[in-house]
Nucleic acid binder design. Structure first.
Length: 306
DNA sequence: CGACTTTGACCAGCGC
DNA sequence: GCGCTGGTCAAAGTCG
């Protein structure tokens, strides 16, 4: 059932979120492909509560990020408040145990109660949402659970398959029709009982060939293995980013997603857009992860993936 | 038989 | 207060 087989992650886009504060850069300095996304997907991403910023505007992005840190804390609660009711629970487990999930912990959160930063949340309740809490009635659980947003990362992938292989195993737990979109949104949870990472997969209503995958939370375990064929695709790389060890990775200029992927694959192709979550932006520059190999090479905007 | 998907129902947050 | 919407639950069905 999964499209895993046919998956060709060669084309993924990436964005991260936790602040729900995304910025879209202007189209003038990007390639057509990028423009395409910025023009068409911004609305969709906005629904996620994200704004996209082009890599070319990294500097600007950084500035915005700073602003976000200072001004949009409250947005964290606002943007997704209507849609992530139980996310907080999800965050509890892995992130709670993770030393510094998403790297967001480094940022002072004036109002932790509404912050999406899992690290700020007490690991209390339902640390294991994936496994639920059998004892506690769902209603009670819902009351107890405060929505605590996890850092989120999204990929925009031009692909014919919906569910991209990322090295982890996922269990689908829901599907919903999305307003203003003919395509349903699917909800997946990591099958690891101790891991509460979730992801949503949906197609762009504007361009059905584009799949938007949103990760929420961080894996507290290693991937189960590489996708069939032994490819290490970009999504794997990004997924790994969710592990505590590399969760703070951010690159100011984007990410090359092709490493290890046969460039000739046609099923999907990467669209050179990087989307990041402002709150997770660490110190500008010079913080390239040593793990970068996992994440791929940094390539100039417009040159990526072509 | 276990793991996974499907799908309708339920619930909470948000906007009007 | 009410309706809409997104997110999740959980039973039933499917698959290997």
């Amino acid at each position: 059932m999964e499209d895993k087989e046919g998956l060709d992650p060669a084309a993924t886009e990436f964005k991260s979120d936790s602040s729900s504060s995304w910025t879209l850069a202007g189209p003038d300095s990007v390639s057509d492909g990028v423009n395409y996304f910025f023009d068409r997907e911004s609305s969709i991403l906005s629904e996620f509560g994200w704004n996209i910023l082009q890599p070319d505007h990294a500097d600007e992005f950084e500035r915005l990020s700073e602003l976000d840190r200072a001004d949009t804390r409250d947005d964290l609660a606002g943007d997704f408040s209507g849609s992530s009711k139980r996310c907080g629970v999800a965050g509890g487990s892995c992130s709670g145990t993770a030393s510094n999930p998403g790297g967001s912990a480094e940022l002072p959160i004036p109002n932790p109660s509404v912050s999406s930063s899992s690290s700020e949340d007490p690991p209390e309740k339902s640390t294991d949402f994936g496994g639920k809490q059998p004892e506690m009635p769902s209603k009670v659980r819902k009351k107890v659970q405060k929505r605590i947003r996890q850092p989120r990362f999204a990929f925009m992938t031009k692909s014919e398959v919906d569910h991209l292989e990322d090295g982890y195993r996922w269990r689908k737990y829901g599907q919903k029709a999305v307003k203003n979109s003919p395509f349903p949104r699917s909800y997946y949870r990591c099958t690891n009982s101790k891991c509460t990472v979730k992801k949503r997969v949906e197609r762009s209503s504007e361009d059905p060939t584009i799949v938007i995958t949103t990760y929420e939370g961080q894996h507290c375990h290693h991937s189960v293995g590489f996708p069939r064929g032994g490819l290490i695709n970009h999504e794997v790389a990004f997924a790994r980013q969710f592990t505590p060890a590399v969760s703070q990775f951010h690159h100011p200029h984007g990410i090359q997603l092709h490493r290890g992927i046969p460039p000739s694959t046609t099923q999907s192709h990467q669209v050179p857009i990087e989307v990041r979550e402002s709150r997770e932006i660490p110190e500008p520059t010079s913080q390239l992860p040593k793990d970068e190999g996992l994440l791929g090479d940094i390539v100039p905007p417009g040159m990526r993936n072509r």
